[in-house]
Design a binder for these strands. Structure first.
Lengths: 157, 157
DNA sequence: TAGCTTCTGGACTACAGGGTCCAATCAAGG
DNA sequence: CCTTGATTGGACCCTGTAGTCCAGAAGCTA
């Protein structure tokens, strides 16, 4: 009766992949704007499995945000480190780089009211700051790019 | 039978005041995160009057956003114009100035999916740009301030 | 194959969501 | 003072919502 803990039917979906899909959804539609039905149909994960794995919609959101910070934000930080200036880096990111929508949304929508989200966004910002000094200008550019749907005129200073 | 158009019982609530309360709510809880019940109970406006006056939740949101741009964003622009540098201006705004939460939220949450919202946010940004060059840095600072709940360390460049 | 644990399909619950409607009430003009 | 048209309280509708549950299938271990 000493199980290795991996008994029974194995998971039929790739958790990492599912979480990634959640990143996309939450990053596009916000937390409140994304329903569990949305998630279920887009992640390809059964409702029951979703609740068993993540506990709640918020649990999945936190998992998504963590992965987002670890993967996409980290990738963005590398772009900043490699680029010659902030404008160039932001252009690269919004062009073909990682989608930072979830981070922006988390900062404005959830961080102010959810301490665990705030902790993650703080982690994200720290990671970005390590890479470059002009964090705020980068954030502003990303914000405007998301809002207008395309690259705004890059007004220098 | 030629009415001036102002017949019947006059409005029992101050529309401007109601919209202002909506600005606060939407600015704190986002569009999707604010229910019509929330609005009804906080604005002190009857459900029926609300729908008669604004047509829909989205209609009220747009009205709120417009007032926000005309009032709060304009006020912020004046602070920028008066201050000596961006950091100082942002500190003033987040300290006791107008709350720009709705603008930030609209930029990230609604502008990407609602053209009319995008139009308003564009108007807001234009108004801010008129006042000062370092728009992006200001936006980044405001974002971080909102996310952390207090003024972040003002890292220079 | 037997036994065990987990997954899956989908029904289900209880409630919150946006939006509508009505009868009663009220203030203004004529 | 009576008509008029808007306001109000609150019930109401239908859909969407987050979350639960069960019966059966499906793997893994032995």
């Amino acid at each position: 009766m000493a199980y290795g803990g991996d008994m029974g039917r194995p998971r039929g979906f790739d958790e990492d992949e599912a979480v990634r899909a959640a990143v996309t959804l939450f990053g596009r539609q916000s937390f409140a704007g994304t329903s569990v039905d949305d998630l279920v149909s887009h992640l390809g994960v059964h409702r029951g499995s979703l609740y068993k794995t993540f506990g709640s919609k918020r649990g999945l959101y936190l998992a998504a945000l963590r992965q987002h910070v670890d993967r996409d934000v980290t990738a963005a930080a590398e772009v900043f480190a490699a680029a010659t200036d902030v404008d160039e880096a932001v252009r690269r990111i919004t062009d073909a780089g990682p989608d930072l929508g979830l981070l922006l949304l988390a900062l404005v929508e959830r961080a102010p009211v959810d301490p665990e989200v705030a902790a993650e966004t703080t982690r994200a910002l720290a990671r970005l700051r390590d890479a470059r000094g002009e964090l705020d200008r980068a954030l502003g550019l990303l914000l405007r790019t998301r809002a207008t749907g395309s690259a705004p005129e890059f007004v220098g200073e």
